[in-house]
Design a protein around this nucleic acid. Structure first.
Lengths: 204, 204
DNA sequence: CGCAAAGTATACCGATCTGTTTCCTTTGTC
DNA sequence: GACAAAGGAAACAGATCGGTATACTTTGCG
C-alpha cells in the first residue's frame, strides 16, 4: 500500500503493536493458560518474537511484567465485557441478565482458562503481594458495574443485589473452568433471575 | 508412659503419622498456601522432616504426590465439612443454610488460602491433566451433598437448587480468597435464603 | 541375634529459571 | 550522512528445579 498521508501512517502505527504491548499480550495469553510460575520468561520472549534485552528495557522484572499484564487486562476485559452486555439488551434488567449470556460466550471461547485474577491470587497468596490490590480492584469494579445496572433498573437494595449477582458470576467462572461440561452460566442466570424477581417484589 | 497393652500401642501408632502421611499433610499445607509450581520438593521435605529418598520411595514423582494430596484431601475435607454442617442445625433447611456458616468459619481460619482444586486446575489447565478428574470429582461430590440436603428438605427441584447453591458456595470461596474483607459467606447465605424461599413457594 | 526393609544425609545430574552482559544491527531524526 | 536510541542474538551467571545414586543408620520382626 502506498503511504499517501500522515494519518494513515499513524493509524497503521497504532494497529501494529509496540514491543511492549506485544510482550504484555503474549504474556497475558500464556499466563492465562499455563499460570504465572509455570510460564517462563523465555517462552514469552520466543512466542512474542522479542529479545530478552527488550523485555528488561520495558520491565524491571517478571513480577513487573505480571503487574502490567494484570493492569492492562483490567480495562481491556471490562470494556469489552460491558460493551457486549450493552448490545445484549436494552432494558436495565435485560442487561443484568445479559451479563450471564456474555459470560457463557466467554466460557465457550477457545481462550477461556478461568479468571486471571483468581489465578494470580492462587499463586501469590501473600496479602501484601503487589498483585493483591490489582485483583481486588478488578473484582470491585466488576461488582460496582453490576450495582450500576441494578440502580438503573430501579432496585432499592442495589448494593446487596450486586453483591449476590457478583458472587454468582464468580461461581460460574470457576465452575466453568473446573467442569466445562456444566452449563455454569445458565445456572447462574437462573439463580440471578430468582434473586432479581424477589427484589422486584420487595421494591413494590 | 508405660506401655501396658497392645491396643494402646496401636492407637499411638495410628496417632503418629506415617512418613507418607507426613509428606502428604505437609505438601497439602504448602501447596494450598503457595501453589503447586511455586512449592519445591526440597521445601516439602525440609518442613516434613523427611528425606528425599523416602519421598521417591512412596511416590514416583512430584505429580503423583500432588495427586495423592488431592485425593486424600477430598475425603478429609468433605468429611470434616459435613460433620460440621450436621452440628450446625437439626432441620434439613437449617443444615442447608448452615453450609455457609461453616464456610464462613473456614474462610476466617488462618490456613484458608482458597480452594485447592480450583488452584490445581488454575495451574494445570490441560483438560487431559490427571488432576482434572480429581478436581471435577470433588466439585461433583460437594454439589451432590447439597442435593441430598435439598432432597431431605423435600424440595421438588432439588437438582436445580443444588446447582445454584453450589455456584454460590464456589463464588463465596473465591471472593473470600481474593477479597478477605468482604463477608462472602454472609452474601452467599442471604442469596441462598432467597433462592430456597422461592423454591418453597413453588413446592406448595 | 540377624536380616531385610525403611529411613537419613548428602552429593550429584541435567535441565530450567530469572536476570545480566556483550557485541552487533536496525531505525528514526536532526 | 551522522549519531543516538532501540532492538536482536547469544553467551553467561547463580540459583533452583525434579530426580537419582551412594553410603550409612535405624527399625521391625521372626
Amino acid at each position: 500500500m502506498i503511504q499517501t498521508c500522515i494519518p494513515i501512517l499513524e493509524v497503521h502505527a497504532m494497529a501494529t503493536l509496540s514491543k511492549r504491548d506485544q510482550l504484555v499480550k503474549t504474556a497475558t495469553e500464556l499466563f492465562a493458560e499455563f499460570g504465572y510460575h509455570a510460564t517462563g520468561i523465555d517462552k514469552i520472549l520466543q512466542q512474542a518474537g522479542v529479545s530478552k534485552k527488550t523485555l528488561y528495557h520495558h520491565f524491571r522484572s517478571k513480577d513487573e511484567l505480571i503487574l502490567a499484564v494484570l493492569r492492562d487486562y483490567d480495562s481491556l476485559f471490562r470494556n469489552d465485557f460491558m460493551k457486549q452486555v450493552d448490545n445484549e439488551a436494552d432494558s436495565p434488567k435485560g442487561k443484568l441478565l445479559g451479563v450471564y449470556d456474555v459470560a457463557e460466550r466467554w466460557f465457550n471461547s477457545d481462550d477461556f482458562f478461568g479468571c486471571m485474577y483468581i489465578k494470580a491470587i492462587g499463586e501469590h497468596s501473600d496479602p501484601k503481594s503487589p498483585f493483591r490490590d490489582v485483583c481486588k480492584q478488578f473484582k470491585k469494579l466488576t461488582r460496582n458495574y453490576l450495582e450500576e445496572l441494578c440502580v438503573e433498573a430501579g432496585y432499592r437494595a442495589a448494593a446487596e443485589l450486586a453483591d449476590q449477582l457478583a458472587l454468582l458470576l464468580e461461581g460460574a467462572i470457576v465452575t466453568a473452568q473446573v467442569s466445562p461440561e456444566i452449563d455454569a452460566a445458565r445456572i447462574a442466570r437462573d439463580a440471578a433471575e430468582i434473586i432479581i424477581s424477589a427484589q422486584e417484589k420487595k421494591s413494590h
